[in-house]
């Protein structure tokens, strides 16, 4: 077990556990935005750890391509959660009692955008 093997083992297992925690959070959390937290953050961290653990074992060119995938995932995860979170908010599938502050309510009310803030949530 050389040093790179040990480092790869630690990274791979850490990444897999992070993915498992994310999936567990996805199941346990009450509503869509909370599940989005679980679906993007630990998964991206897990993917990052696994890909770095893989990149160590390969020569430089393929490692660079793998790190490109990591960068891509880091860029797209927030975009997906923003889109899905916005759809969840506008479709009214969010639990209102958990909300501490609802900054989107006022702009929604003023603009002509349809949203749960103006008509009653249909959930």
């Amino acid at each position: 077990m050389t040093v790179t093997d040990v480092v790869t083992a630690v990274l791979l297992l850490g990444g897999a556990l992070s993915c498992l925690l994310g999936a567990l959070g996805l199941v346990r959390f009450p509503d869509v935005p909370a599940r989005l937290q679980a679906a993007t953050k630990p998964q991206t961290l897990g993917l990052l750890l696994i890909l770095v653990g893989t990149a160590i074992r390969l020569e430089f060119e393929s490692a660079a391509t793998l790190l490109l995938v990591v960068a891509f995932q880091i860029i797209t995860a927030p975009v997906i959660s923003q889109i899905v979170g916005r759809s969840a908010y506008r479709a009214g599938t969010m639990r209102r009692d958990d909300l501490v502050v609802d900054e989107l309510a006022d702009p929604m009310a003023r603009s002509d955008l349809p949203g749960p803030a103006r008509d009653d949530p249909s959930s």
Partner: peptide, 8 residues
């Protein structure tokens, strides 16, 4: 992730 482990 599975694909990356396969590559590893």
């Amino acid at each position: 992730c599975g694909g990356a482990v396969y590559v590893a």
